[in-house]
Design a binder for these strands. Structure first.
Lengths: 245, 245
DNA sequence: GATTTAATGTGTTGTAAGTACATATTTGCT
DNA sequence: AGCAAATATGTACTTACAACACATTAAATC
Protein backbone atom coordinates (compact mmCIF):
# COMPACT_ATOMS: atom_id res chain seq x y z
CA UNK A 1 0.00 0.00 0.00
CA UNK A 2 2.68 2.46 -0.99
CA UNK A 3 1.14 5.12 -3.16
CA UNK A 4 -2.34 6.48 -2.81
CA UNK A 5 -4.24 9.10 -4.72
CA UNK A 6 -1.97 11.82 -5.95
CA UNK A 7 0.16 12.46 -2.95
CA UNK A 8 3.82 12.55 -3.69
CA UNK A 9 5.47 9.28 -2.86
CA UNK A 10 7.78 10.69 -0.20
CA UNK A 11 4.82 12.24 1.52
CA UNK A 12 2.91 8.99 1.53
CA UNK A 13 5.56 6.81 3.00
CA UNK A 14 5.62 8.78 6.21
CA UNK A 15 2.05 7.83 6.76
CA UNK A 16 1.18 4.61 8.45
CA UNK A 17 -1.69 2.43 7.41
CA UNK A 18 -3.78 3.30 10.40
CA UNK A 19 -3.53 7.04 9.96
CA UNK A 20 -5.65 6.88 6.88
CA UNK A 21 -7.70 3.77 7.30
CA UNK A 22 -9.52 5.33 10.16
CA UNK A 23 -12.66 6.34 8.37
CA UNK A 24 -15.50 3.88 8.05
CA UNK A 25 -17.78 4.04 5.02
CA UNK A 26 -21.48 3.33 5.22
CA UNK A 27 -24.49 3.65 2.98
CA UNK A 28 -27.89 4.90 4.10
CA UNK A 29 -31.07 4.26 2.14
CA UNK A 30 -33.99 6.63 2.02
CA UNK A 31 -36.68 4.17 1.04
CA UNK A 32 -39.74 5.96 -0.23
CA UNK A 33 -43.15 4.39 -0.48
CA UNK A 34 -46.65 5.67 -1.21
CA UNK A 35 -49.86 4.82 0.55
CA UNK A 36 -53.15 6.59 1.25
CA UNK A 37 -52.16 9.61 -0.80
CA UNK A 38 -49.09 10.15 1.34
CA UNK A 39 -45.40 9.80 0.72
CA UNK A 40 -43.76 7.59 3.29
CA UNK A 41 -40.29 6.51 4.25
CA UNK A 42 -39.15 3.29 5.83
CA UNK A 43 -37.36 3.77 9.15
CA UNK A 44 -35.91 1.61 11.88
CA UNK A 45 -35.61 2.24 15.59
CA UNK A 46 -32.08 3.34 16.33
CA UNK A 47 -30.13 0.91 18.47
CA UNK A 48 -27.65 3.46 19.76
CA UNK A 49 -27.92 4.71 23.30
CA UNK A 50 -27.33 8.26 22.14
CA UNK A 51 -30.43 8.09 20.02
CA UNK A 52 -32.86 6.01 22.04
CA UNK A 53 -36.39 6.65 20.93
CA UNK A 54 -35.32 8.11 17.62
CA UNK A 55 -35.77 6.55 14.21
CA UNK A 56 -33.10 6.23 11.61
CA UNK A 57 -32.61 5.30 7.98
CA UNK A 58 -31.65 1.81 6.95
CA UNK A 59 -27.96 1.56 6.44
CA UNK A 60 -24.92 -0.59 6.77
CA UNK A 61 -21.18 -0.38 6.49
CA UNK A 62 -19.80 -0.95 3.04
CA UNK A 63 -17.94 -4.21 2.85
CA UNK A 64 -14.42 -4.24 1.60
CA UNK A 65 -15.29 -6.72 -1.11
CA UNK A 66 -18.30 -4.98 -2.63
CA UNK A 67 -18.70 -2.00 -4.93
CA UNK A 68 -20.33 0.87 -3.14
CA UNK A 69 -23.29 0.68 -5.52
CA UNK A 70 -23.88 -2.88 -4.38
CA UNK A 71 -24.20 -1.97 -0.74
CA UNK A 72 -27.58 -0.22 -0.92
CA UNK A 73 -28.96 -3.07 -3.02
CA UNK A 74 -27.82 -5.48 -0.34
CA UNK A 75 -29.47 -3.39 2.37
CA UNK A 76 -32.71 -3.23 0.39
CA UNK A 77 -32.68 -6.93 -0.27
CA UNK A 78 -32.04 -7.78 3.37
CA UNK A 79 -34.66 -5.43 4.73
CA UNK A 80 -37.49 -5.56 2.24
CA UNK A 81 -36.84 -8.74 0.32
CA UNK A 82 -36.96 -6.78 -2.93
CA UNK A 83 -34.13 -6.89 -5.39
CA UNK A 84 -35.40 -5.14 -8.47
CA UNK A 85 -35.57 -1.66 -7.04
CA UNK A 86 -34.87 1.82 -8.25
CA UNK A 87 -31.87 3.33 -6.48
CA UNK A 88 -30.07 6.59 -7.00
CA UNK A 89 -27.09 8.05 -5.20
CA UNK A 90 -27.89 11.40 -3.65
CA UNK A 91 -24.97 12.79 -1.71
CA UNK A 92 -22.18 11.81 0.62
CA UNK A 93 -22.25 13.14 4.16
CA UNK A 94 -19.09 13.16 6.23
CA UNK A 95 -18.85 15.76 8.94
CA UNK A 96 -16.50 14.81 11.73
CA UNK A 97 -19.08 14.55 14.45
CA UNK A 98 -21.93 12.98 12.55
CA UNK A 99 -21.59 9.53 14.17
CA UNK A 100 -21.18 9.27 17.94
CA UNK A 101 -19.14 6.07 17.81
CA UNK A 102 -16.41 7.20 15.48
CA UNK A 103 -15.57 8.62 12.11
CA UNK A 104 -18.10 7.28 9.66
CA UNK A 105 -18.95 8.86 6.36
CA UNK A 106 -22.12 7.78 4.66
CA UNK A 107 -23.20 7.67 1.06
CA UNK A 108 -26.92 8.36 0.79
CA UNK A 109 -29.18 6.64 -1.73
CA UNK A 110 -32.86 7.00 -2.25
CA UNK A 111 -35.08 4.20 -3.38
CA UNK A 112 -38.61 3.99 -4.71
CA UNK A 113 -40.66 0.91 -3.96
CA UNK A 114 -44.25 -0.17 -4.13
CA UNK A 115 -45.33 -0.60 -0.52
CA UNK A 116 -47.94 -3.20 -1.33
CA UNK A 117 -45.62 -5.32 -3.38
CA UNK A 118 -42.78 -5.97 -0.98
CA UNK A 119 -42.62 -8.44 1.84
CA UNK A 120 -41.20 -6.71 4.88
CA UNK A 121 -40.51 -8.57 8.02
CA UNK A 122 -42.16 -5.75 9.87
CA UNK A 123 -42.78 -7.88 12.90
CA UNK A 124 -39.40 -8.88 14.28
CA UNK A 125 -37.64 -5.82 12.98
CA UNK A 126 -38.47 -2.46 14.44
CA UNK A 127 -39.28 -1.31 10.96
CA UNK A 128 -42.10 1.08 10.13
CA UNK A 129 -43.38 3.35 7.41
CA UNK A 130 -43.53 6.99 8.46
CA UNK A 131 -45.29 9.86 6.73
CA UNK A 132 -42.53 12.03 5.33
CA UNK A 133 -44.42 15.20 6.18
CA UNK A 134 -44.60 14.39 9.83
CA UNK A 135 -40.96 13.59 10.44
CA UNK A 136 -39.36 16.23 12.61
CA UNK A 137 -36.25 14.57 13.96
CA UNK A 138 -34.18 11.51 13.19
CA UNK A 139 -31.05 9.89 14.59
CA UNK A 140 -27.61 10.99 13.34
CA UNK A 141 -27.86 13.53 10.52
CA UNK A 142 -30.59 11.46 8.94
CA UNK A 143 -33.12 14.27 8.83
CA UNK A 144 -30.75 16.25 6.68
CA UNK A 145 -30.23 13.21 4.46
CA UNK A 146 -33.97 12.73 4.15
CA UNK A 147 -34.51 16.38 3.24
CA UNK A 148 -31.83 16.26 0.62
CA UNK A 149 -33.19 13.05 -0.85
CA UNK A 150 -36.69 14.41 -1.06
CA UNK A 151 -35.35 17.49 -2.79
CA UNK A 152 -33.56 15.26 -5.29
CA UNK A 153 -36.65 13.14 -5.80
CA UNK A 154 -38.67 16.25 -6.54
CA UNK A 155 -36.16 17.32 -9.17
CA UNK A 156 -35.95 13.90 -10.77
CA UNK A 157 -39.62 13.11 -10.85
CA UNK A 158 -40.25 16.01 -13.20
CA UNK A 159 -37.91 14.84 -15.87
CA UNK A 160 -37.52 11.12 -15.60
CA UNK A 161 -40.09 8.32 -15.63
CA UNK A 162 -39.20 6.95 -12.21
CA UNK A 163 -42.34 7.69 -10.27
CA UNK A 164 -43.97 4.46 -11.43
CA UNK A 165 -41.72 2.52 -9.09
CA UNK A 166 -43.96 3.77 -6.30
CA UNK A 167 -47.17 2.48 -7.87
CA UNK A 168 -48.60 -0.94 -8.60
CA UNK A 169 -48.28 -2.09 -12.17
CA UNK A 170 -51.68 -0.79 -13.21
CA UNK A 171 -52.87 2.62 -12.15
CA UNK A 172 -55.25 5.36 -13.17
CA UNK A 173 -54.33 8.92 -14.02
CA UNK A 174 -55.96 10.07 -10.83
CA UNK A 175 -53.73 7.82 -8.77
CA UNK A 176 -50.73 9.13 -10.65
CA UNK A 177 -51.76 12.72 -10.06
CA UNK A 178 -52.35 12.08 -6.37
CA UNK A 179 -48.85 10.68 -6.15
CA UNK A 180 -47.30 13.66 -7.88
CA UNK A 181 -49.14 15.91 -5.50
CA UNK A 182 -47.93 13.94 -2.50
CA UNK A 183 -44.34 14.20 -3.66
CA UNK A 184 -44.38 17.80 -4.76
CA UNK A 185 -46.59 19.01 -1.97
CA UNK A 186 -48.79 21.06 -4.28
CA UNK A 187 -52.15 20.80 -5.94
CA UNK A 188 -52.22 20.24 -9.69
CA UNK A 189 -54.91 21.06 -12.18
CA UNK A 190 -56.32 17.78 -13.46
CA UNK A 191 -56.74 18.88 -17.07
CA UNK A 192 -53.29 20.44 -17.37
CA UNK A 193 -51.73 17.51 -15.59
CA UNK A 194 -53.23 15.04 -18.01
CA UNK A 195 -52.10 17.00 -21.01
CA UNK A 196 -48.57 17.17 -19.71
CA UNK A 197 -48.36 13.49 -18.90
CA UNK A 198 -49.98 12.59 -22.19
CA UNK A 199 -47.26 14.09 -24.30
CA UNK A 200 -44.43 12.67 -22.23
CA UNK A 201 -44.64 9.26 -23.84
CA UNK A 202 -44.36 7.46 -20.54
CA UNK A 203 -47.61 5.51 -20.44
CA UNK A 204 -49.32 2.64 -22.16
CA UNK A 205 -53.09 2.65 -22.30
CA UNK A 206 -54.15 -0.79 -21.14
CA UNK A 207 -57.74 -0.52 -22.40
CA UNK A 208 -58.86 -1.63 -18.99
CA UNK A 209 -60.94 0.15 -16.42
CA UNK A 210 -60.73 0.58 -12.70
CA UNK A 211 -63.01 -1.72 -10.75
CA UNK A 212 -64.71 -1.48 -7.40
CA UNK A 213 -64.54 2.29 -7.24
CA UNK A 214 -67.62 4.16 -5.98
CA UNK A 215 -67.77 6.42 -8.99
CA UNK A 216 -67.14 6.41 -12.70
CA UNK A 217 -64.09 4.17 -13.27
CA UNK A 218 -61.04 5.57 -15.01
CA UNK A 219 -58.83 3.97 -17.59
CA UNK A 220 -55.83 2.02 -16.42
CA UNK A 221 -52.29 2.59 -17.60
CA UNK A 222 -48.92 1.05 -17.05
CA UNK A 223 -45.45 2.51 -17.41
CA UNK A 224 -43.81 2.18 -20.78
CA UNK A 225 -40.50 0.36 -20.59
CA UNK A 226 -37.35 2.12 -21.74
CA UNK A 227 -37.21 0.15 -24.98
CA UNK A 228 -40.78 1.08 -25.84
CA UNK A 229 -39.89 4.75 -25.71
CA UNK A 230 -39.73 7.06 -28.65
CA UNK A 231 -41.23 4.62 -31.12
CA UNK A 232 -44.12 6.92 -31.80
CA UNK A 233 -41.88 9.96 -31.95
CA UNK A 234 -41.20 11.23 -35.42
CA UNK A 235 -37.53 12.02 -35.14
CA UNK A 236 -34.80 12.35 -32.57
CA UNK A 237 -34.13 15.97 -31.76
CA UNK A 238 -30.76 16.81 -33.21
CA UNK A 239 -28.15 18.81 -31.29
CA UNK A 240 -29.23 22.38 -31.56
CA UNK A 241 -29.12 25.52 -29.48
CA UNK A 242 -29.95 24.39 -26.00
CA UNK A 243 -32.27 26.36 -23.78
CA UNK A 244 -30.80 28.29 -20.91
CA UNK A 245 -33.89 28.17 -18.77
CA UNK B 1 -16.07 1.48 18.68
CA UNK B 2 -18.83 -0.92 19.55
CA UNK B 3 -21.85 -0.02 17.48
CA UNK B 4 -21.80 1.31 13.98
CA UNK B 5 -24.54 2.36 11.62
CA UNK B 6 -27.62 0.25 12.09
CA UNK B 7 -26.15 -3.17 12.32
CA UNK B 8 -27.47 -5.16 15.20
CA UNK B 9 -25.10 -5.08 18.11
CA UNK B 10 -24.42 -8.78 18.15
CA UNK B 11 -23.53 -8.68 14.51
CA UNK B 12 -21.11 -5.84 15.03
CA UNK B 13 -19.17 -7.31 17.84
CA UNK B 14 -17.97 -10.19 15.75
CA UNK B 15 -16.27 -7.73 13.51
CA UNK B 16 -12.80 -6.53 14.25
CA UNK B 17 -11.69 -2.99 13.69
CA UNK B 18 -9.60 -3.82 10.67
CA UNK B 19 -12.36 -5.59 8.83
CA UNK B 20 -14.22 -2.37 8.35
CA UNK B 21 -11.55 0.27 8.52
CA UNK B 22 -10.05 -1.04 5.36
CA UNK B 23 -11.47 1.48 2.96
CA UNK B 24 -9.62 4.72 2.38
CA UNK B 25 -11.56 7.85 1.50
CA UNK B 26 -10.27 10.43 -0.92
CA UNK B 27 -11.60 13.48 -2.67
CA UNK B 28 -10.90 14.35 -6.29
CA UNK B 29 -11.37 17.82 -7.71
CA UNK B 30 -12.44 18.53 -11.25
CA UNK B 31 -11.10 22.04 -11.52
CA UNK B 32 -12.63 23.82 -14.47
CA UNK B 33 -11.17 26.92 -16.05
CA UNK B 34 -11.88 28.91 -19.18
CA UNK B 35 -9.39 30.33 -21.65
CA UNK B 36 -9.38 31.08 -25.37
CA UNK B 37 -13.02 30.16 -25.75
CA UNK B 38 -12.35 26.68 -24.43
CA UNK B 39 -13.29 24.89 -21.26
CA UNK B 40 -10.25 23.47 -19.52
CA UNK B 41 -9.51 21.27 -16.59
CA UNK B 42 -6.47 21.24 -14.34
CA UNK B 43 -4.64 17.93 -14.29
CA UNK B 44 -1.49 16.51 -12.77
CA UNK B 45 0.83 13.80 -14.07
CA UNK B 46 0.02 10.59 -12.30
CA UNK B 47 2.82 9.31 -10.08
CA UNK B 48 1.68 5.71 -10.12
CA UNK B 49 3.58 3.17 -12.15
CA UNK B 50 0.35 1.67 -13.41
CA UNK B 51 -0.55 5.00 -14.98
CA UNK B 52 2.74 6.38 -16.24
CA UNK B 53 2.18 8.95 -18.91
CA UNK B 54 -1.43 9.48 -17.91
CA UNK B 55 -2.91 12.55 -16.28
CA UNK B 56 -5.17 12.56 -13.29
CA UNK B 57 -7.38 14.84 -11.26
CA UNK B 58 -6.11 16.61 -8.18
CA UNK B 59 -7.02 14.70 -5.11
CA UNK B 60 -5.98 13.66 -1.67
CA UNK B 61 -7.02 11.37 1.09
CA UNK B 62 -9.52 12.80 3.52
CA UNK B 63 -7.92 13.37 6.90
CA UNK B 64 -9.52 11.89 9.95
CA UNK B 65 -9.81 15.29 11.56
CA UNK B 66 -11.50 17.21 8.75
CA UNK B 67 -15.03 17.31 7.43
CA UNK B 68 -15.21 15.84 3.96
CA UNK B 69 -16.32 19.20 2.60
CA UNK B 70 -13.09 20.72 3.87
CA UNK B 71 -10.87 18.31 1.98
CA UNK B 72 -11.50 19.67 -1.52
CA UNK B 73 -10.99 23.22 -0.24
CA UNK B 74 -7.67 22.14 1.19
CA UNK B 75 -6.65 20.55 -2.10
CA UNK B 76 -7.64 23.67 -4.01
CA UNK B 77 -5.78 25.90 -1.61
CA UNK B 78 -2.65 23.79 -1.75
CA UNK B 79 -2.62 23.48 -5.51
CA UNK B 80 -3.88 26.78 -6.78
CA UNK B 81 -3.40 29.11 -3.85
CA UNK B 82 -7.07 30.09 -4.08
CA UNK B 83 -9.39 29.82 -1.15
CA UNK B 84 -12.57 31.54 -2.20
CA UNK B 85 -13.66 29.06 -4.79
CA UNK B 86 -16.91 27.55 -5.94
CA UNK B 87 -17.11 23.86 -5.10
CA UNK B 88 -19.91 21.39 -5.51
CA UNK B 89 -20.05 17.71 -4.68
CA UNK B 90 -20.87 15.60 -7.71
CA UNK B 91 -20.82 11.92 -6.92
CA UNK B 92 -18.98 9.27 -4.97
CA UNK B 93 -17.14 6.58 -6.89
CA UNK B 94 -16.20 3.36 -5.19
CA UNK B 95 -15.87 0.31 -7.36
CA UNK B 96 -13.63 -2.34 -5.89
CA UNK B 97 -10.93 -2.17 -8.50
CA UNK B 98 -10.82 1.56 -9.14
CA UNK B 99 -7.48 2.12 -7.37
CA UNK B 100 -4.59 -0.22 -8.07
CA UNK B 101 -3.01 0.17 -4.63
CA UNK B 102 -5.99 -0.75 -2.52
CA UNK B 103 -9.59 -0.02 -1.69
CA UNK B 104 -10.08 3.70 -2.05
CA UNK B 105 -13.40 5.35 -2.60
CA UNK B 106 -13.41 8.91 -3.82
CA UNK B 107 -15.83 11.76 -3.46
CA UNK B 108 -15.77 13.92 -6.58
CA UNK B 109 -16.15 17.69 -6.48
CA UNK B 110 -16.09 20.14 -9.30
CA UNK B 111 -14.73 23.62 -8.98
CA UNK B 112 -14.95 26.75 -11.11
CA UNK B 113 -12.06 29.14 -11.06
CA UNK B 114 -10.80 32.06 -13.08
CA UNK B 115 -7.62 30.84 -14.75
CA UNK B 116 -6.06 34.27 -14.91
CA UNK B 117 -6.72 35.04 -11.29
CA UNK B 118 -5.04 32.18 -9.52
CA UNK B 119 -1.36 31.67 -8.83
CA UNK B 120 -0.47 28.13 -9.72
CA UNK B 121 2.92 26.81 -9.08
CA UNK B 122 2.80 25.36 -12.55
CA UNK B 123 6.57 25.06 -12.73
CA UNK B 124 7.62 22.63 -10.04
CA UNK B 125 4.39 20.72 -10.10
CA UNK B 126 3.50 18.68 -13.12
CA UNK B 127 0.32 20.65 -13.33
CA UNK B 128 -1.29 21.71 -16.58
CA UNK B 129 -4.53 22.96 -18.02
CA UNK B 130 -6.06 20.61 -20.59
CA UNK B 131 -8.83 21.27 -23.03
CA UNK B 132 -11.79 19.24 -21.82
CA UNK B 133 -12.81 18.35 -25.36
CA UNK B 134 -9.51 16.72 -26.15
CA UNK B 135 -9.23 14.48 -23.13
CA UNK B 136 -9.58 10.86 -24.14
CA UNK B 137 -8.09 8.95 -21.26
CA UNK B 138 -7.12 9.64 -17.68
CA UNK B 139 -5.64 7.66 -14.81
CA UNK B 140 -7.91 5.67 -12.49
CA UNK B 141 -11.60 6.20 -13.29
CA UNK B 142 -10.98 9.89 -13.64
CA UNK B 143 -12.35 10.13 -17.15
CA UNK B 144 -15.67 8.90 -15.86
CA UNK B 145 -15.49 11.40 -13.02
CA UNK B 146 -14.72 14.19 -15.45
CA UNK B 147 -17.62 13.23 -17.70
CA UNK B 148 -20.02 13.12 -14.81
CA UNK B 149 -18.81 16.47 -13.51
CA UNK B 150 -19.19 18.12 -16.87
CA UNK B 151 -22.68 16.73 -17.12
CA UNK B 152 -23.47 18.20 -13.72
CA UNK B 153 -21.92 21.51 -14.65
CA UNK B 154 -24.09 21.66 -17.76
CA UNK B 155 -27.20 21.07 -15.69
CA UNK B 156 -26.27 23.61 -13.05
CA UNK B 157 -25.14 26.37 -15.32
CA UNK B 158 -28.63 26.68 -16.76
CA UNK B 159 -30.32 27.38 -13.52
CA UNK B 160 -27.83 28.87 -11.13
CA UNK B 161 -25.59 31.90 -11.43
CA UNK B 162 -22.34 30.02 -11.00
CA UNK B 163 -20.76 30.51 -14.37
CA UNK B 164 -19.27 33.84 -13.34
CA UNK B 165 -16.70 32.02 -11.24
CA UNK B 166 -14.98 31.16 -14.51
CA UNK B 167 -14.73 34.75 -15.68
CA UNK B 168 -12.83 37.82 -14.53
CA UNK B 169 -14.85 40.30 -12.54
CA UNK B 170 -15.79 42.40 -15.54
CA UNK B 171 -16.92 40.79 -18.76
CA UNK B 172 -18.96 41.50 -21.85
CA UNK B 173 -22.04 39.64 -22.97
CA UNK B 174 -20.07 38.18 -25.85
CA UNK B 175 -17.52 36.71 -23.45
CA UNK B 176 -20.35 35.27 -21.41
CA UNK B 177 -21.99 33.77 -24.46
CA UNK B 178 -18.70 32.27 -25.65
CA UNK B 179 -18.31 30.66 -22.27
CA UNK B 180 -21.81 29.19 -22.31
CA UNK B 181 -21.11 27.82 -25.74
CA UNK B 182 -17.84 26.29 -24.59
CA UNK B 183 -19.55 24.57 -21.68
CA UNK B 184 -22.67 23.43 -23.49
CA UNK B 185 -20.91 22.56 -26.70
CA UNK B 186 -23.53 24.25 -28.86
CA UNK B 187 -23.96 27.49 -30.73
CA UNK B 188 -26.41 30.02 -29.34
CA UNK B 189 -28.26 32.78 -31.11
CA UNK B 190 -26.82 36.05 -29.88
CA UNK B 191 -30.12 37.94 -29.73
CA UNK B 192 -32.04 35.21 -27.96
CA UNK B 193 -29.16 34.60 -25.61
CA UNK B 194 -29.11 38.22 -24.54
CA UNK B 195 -32.82 38.30 -23.95
CA UNK B 196 -32.65 35.21 -21.80
CA UNK B 197 -29.75 36.45 -19.72
CA UNK B 198 -31.32 39.87 -19.42
CA UNK B 199 -34.38 38.61 -17.62
CA UNK B 200 -32.47 36.35 -15.27
CA UNK B 201 -31.47 39.15 -12.93
CA UNK B 202 -27.91 37.92 -12.65
CA UNK B 203 -25.97 40.91 -14.00
CA UNK B 204 -25.12 44.45 -13.08
CA UNK B 205 -24.51 46.88 -15.89
CA UNK B 206 -21.23 48.63 -15.03
CA UNK B 207 -21.67 51.47 -17.51
CA UNK B 208 -18.20 50.74 -18.74
CA UNK B 209 -16.99 49.65 -22.13
CA UNK B 210 -14.54 47.07 -23.34
CA UNK B 211 -11.17 48.51 -24.28
CA UNK B 212 -8.48 47.45 -26.68
CA UNK B 213 -10.76 45.33 -28.78
CA UNK B 214 -10.38 45.51 -32.57
CA UNK B 215 -14.05 46.27 -33.10
CA UNK B 216 -16.92 48.14 -31.56
CA UNK B 217 -16.56 47.70 -27.78
CA UNK B 218 -19.35 46.13 -25.81
CA UNK B 219 -20.69 47.06 -22.42
CA UNK B 220 -19.17 45.46 -19.36
CA UNK B 221 -21.10 43.66 -16.66
CA UNK B 222 -20.39 41.98 -13.39
CA UNK B 223 -22.22 39.26 -11.53
CA UNK B 224 -24.85 40.40 -9.07
CA UNK B 225 -24.19 39.13 -5.59
CA UNK B 226 -26.78 36.95 -3.90
CA UNK B 227 -27.98 39.78 -1.67
CA UNK B 228 -28.51 42.05 -4.63
CA UNK B 229 -30.90 39.59 -6.16
CA UNK B 230 -34.60 40.11 -6.53
CA UNK B 231 -34.60 43.72 -5.51
CA UNK B 232 -35.93 44.77 -8.86
CA UNK B 233 -38.38 41.91 -8.98
CA UNK B 234 -41.94 42.84 -8.30
CA UNK B 235 -43.00 39.98 -6.12
CA UNK B 236 -41.84 36.61 -4.97
CA UNK B 237 -43.66 33.85 -6.78
CA UNK B 238 -45.90 32.19 -4.27
CA UNK B 239 -46.20 28.44 -3.95
CA UNK B 240 -48.48 27.33 -6.72
CA UNK B 241 -48.91 24.36 -8.98
CA UNK B 242 -45.38 23.43 -9.95
CA UNK B 243 -44.51 22.64 -13.52
CA UNK B 244 -43.88 19.06 -14.47
CA UNK B 245 -41.58 19.86 -17.34
C1' DG C 1 -86.19 4.07 -12.92
C1' DA C 2 -85.26 8.70 -11.85
C1' DT C 3 -82.10 11.49 -9.09
C1' DT C 4 -77.96 12.48 -6.82
C1' DT C 5 -73.04 12.07 -6.22
C1' DA C 6 -68.41 11.86 -7.48
C1' DA C 7 -65.60 11.06 -10.33
C1' DT C 8 -63.73 10.86 -15.65
C1' DG C 9 -62.74 12.93 -19.97
C1' DT C 10 -62.25 16.50 -23.11
C1' DG C 11 -61.62 21.74 -25.04
C1' DT C 12 -60.72 26.95 -25.20
C1' DT C 13 -58.39 31.05 -24.45
C1' DG C 14 -54.93 34.19 -22.89
C1' DT C 15 -50.11 34.71 -21.56
C1' DA C 16 -45.36 33.82 -21.31
C1' DA C 17 -41.31 31.79 -23.14
C1' DG C 18 -38.61 30.00 -27.00
C1' DT C 19 -37.01 30.16 -31.94
C1' DA C 20 -35.75 32.02 -36.25
C1' DC C 21 -34.39 35.76 -38.50
C1' DA C 22 -32.80 41.23 -40.34
C1' DT C 23 -31.23 45.76 -39.96
C1' DA C 24 -28.90 49.72 -38.22
C1' DT C 25 -24.81 51.28 -35.35
C1' DT C 26 -20.16 51.81 -33.56
C1' DT C 27 -15.35 51.34 -33.47
C1' DG C 28 -10.53 50.15 -35.38
C1' DC C 29 -7.90 49.36 -39.31
C1' DT C 30 -6.21 50.12 -43.99
C1' DA D 1 -13.48 57.03 -47.14
C1' DG D 2 -14.50 52.54 -46.99
C1' DC D 3 -14.16 47.90 -44.93
C1' DA D 4 -14.27 44.50 -41.25
C1' DA D 5 -16.09 42.98 -37.11
C1' DA D 6 -18.50 43.36 -33.64
C1' DT D 7 -22.61 45.60 -30.74
C1' DA D 8 -27.41 46.54 -30.10
C1' DT D 9 -32.11 45.91 -30.78
C1' DG D 10 -36.93 44.39 -32.90
C1' DT D 11 -40.57 41.35 -35.01
C1' DA D 12 -43.21 37.37 -36.36
C1' DC D 13 -44.01 32.57 -35.55
C1' DT D 14 -44.55 28.75 -32.64
C1' DT D 15 -44.81 26.13 -28.60
C1' DA D 16 -45.48 25.50 -23.59
C1' DC D 17 -48.09 26.83 -19.52
C1' DA D 18 -52.15 28.45 -16.61
C1' DA D 19 -56.77 29.27 -15.71
C1' DC D 20 -60.98 27.82 -16.43
C1' DA D 21 -66.19 25.13 -18.02
C1' DC D 22 -68.89 21.66 -19.61
C1' DA D 23 -70.60 17.22 -20.92
C1' DT D 24 -70.25 12.07 -19.58
C1' DT D 25 -70.26 7.84 -16.92
C1' DA D 26 -71.13 4.56 -13.26
C1' DA D 27 -72.65 3.57 -8.58
C1' DA D 28 -75.57 4.59 -4.70
C1' DT D 29 -79.89 6.26 -3.02
C1' DC D 30 -84.44 7.17 -2.99
Amino acid sequence: MAKLANLKTAEIEKISHLDYFNIAVSVDCVIFGYENKELKVLLIKSDLEEFTGLWSLLGDLVRTDEDIESAPYRVLKERTGMDDVYLDQVHTFGNIGRHPSGRVITIAYYSLIDIKHHKLKLTHNELHWHKVNEIKKLAFDHKKILDRSLERLREQVMEHPIIFNLLPEKFSLRELQDLYQAILGVGLDRRNFRKKIAHKDWLIDLDEMEEDVPHRPGKLYKAKSQTQKKQTKKKTSQPEARSLA
